[in-house]
Design a protein around this nucleic acid. Structure first.
Lengths: 209, 209
DNA sequence: TGCAAAAGTAGACTGAGTGCAAGATAGCAC
DNA sequence: GTGCTATCTTGCACTCAGTCTACTTTTGCA
């Protein structure tokens, strides 16, 4: 990688780190873009060349996971159902303590999550990621599992909604301070329950008409 | 109702109408708050007394429906399952051409929807409504259907996601210009399919492991 | 008619984000 | 090394959303 490229990566990282550090310490709304730029030792204008909005300074760290569900469905073995693939993958990421699942020990990741949850503007941005995930997952289901378009969209919406609910629930558990290792069994059980619910539907919950 | 109250209602309506008219005509981002205030013949500061943000000028029209799913679940007969109540209610609103379902003929409502869909900031705000709906529905399920908290949250997330998907699908159909009456059978069929999916789960779609 | 509370207004201010034009730096030729 | 070019960076001025404060007008009610 050339010097120019390396510098860009370093600058980007410096800006993001400075931003998150300040935001975590003083709150998202209490820190201005100008302060972030000063802390990262770049001009305000350069900061905007790297991150289009203030929110992106934080949420870009989650952008990689946007198309994860779609990728998982596309990469599954031919004889595996999409739902099983998604289920297995989530449990696997859970065991790896992937922050993507909401289950994590790392203090900086916990602080980042706390920042997200307590800042409406950031949550709104995260929900937009979910929309993208959903659209891509729907496409993947439509193309690889011979699912009609409307059905694929409905299924994708359900899966992503469940995904998000699980992640937020896991984070809330972690936020109490309990070590992730100790919470893993609970989290796995919740995941299994959630995917069973997706798989067998809501009728078993409320059998009556 | 006293004069003061009537005036407030009228002013609020005038501001909102002026805003939506301008936004529909020129686009949300192309119209400034100042222009809206001038069109409604109030000061900028007064406008902000009625609507906290620019987005709210548009989306406040949907705010009433935020707790509709929760209300439906709470108001259902004792022997009816929550899912049936939600299903019946959605079909009923569909037959009434309630804009809430995305199925509508009225040109101004269609224009409003088009505005929403083409403006990311407005869509983001709508998704926040969904979050609230979801939280309230979860509470209603937890309290009236003896559903454990996590289960209630998961179910609520699924229902609201499906709701939103149906509404957007219906709107997309209406946006082509077809009269709502003609689309009703399709929309009802889609709704039935969606609630069946919720009810019996995703396994029937992809039977293999 | 008079008075208190509510509603509206004017104008200055902060902070996010953009456009532009000039300056600094990396890559590459020679 | 020297110079040329493309890219990166910067400063400055600008627009617009949203807030604060202090002031005027209007309404409800005695």
């Amino acid at each position: 990688m050339a010097l120019r490229e390396r510098k860009k990566v370093r600058t980007r990282e410096a800006i993001s780190t400075a931003a998150i550090t300040l935001f975590v310490e003083h709150g998202f709304d209490q820190v201005s873009i100008t302060q972030v730029a000063e802390a990262a030792d770049v001009s305000r204008r350069t900061l905007f060349a790297y991150f289009p909005t203030k929110e992106d300074l934080v949420v870009h760290r989650f952008a990689d996971h946007e198309d994860e569900p779609a990728r998982v469905v596309r990469a599954r073995p031919a004889d595996q159902s999409p739902l099983t693939a998604l289920h297995d993958h989530f449990v696997e990421r859970l065991r790896a303590h992937d922050p993507f699942t909401g289950l994590t020990d790392r203090p900086d990741t916990l602080a980042l999550y706390r920042l997200l949850r307590s800042t409406p503007a950031l949550m709104a941005r995260m929900l937009q990621f979910n929309e993208t995930s959903q659209r891509e997952l729907a496409a993947a289901l439509h193309e690889t599992a011979a699912t009609p378009e409307l059905t694929a969209r409905l299924a994708a919406a359900q899966v992503i909604a469940v995904h998000w609910t699980l992640a937020m629930t896991n984070f809330d558990l972690c936020a109490t301070g309990t070590p992730a290792q100790k919470l893993l069994p609970t989290a796995v059980k919740a995941t299994n329950q959630a995917f069973t619910l997706l798989s067998t539907g809501l009728t078993p919950l409320w059998p009556a008409g």
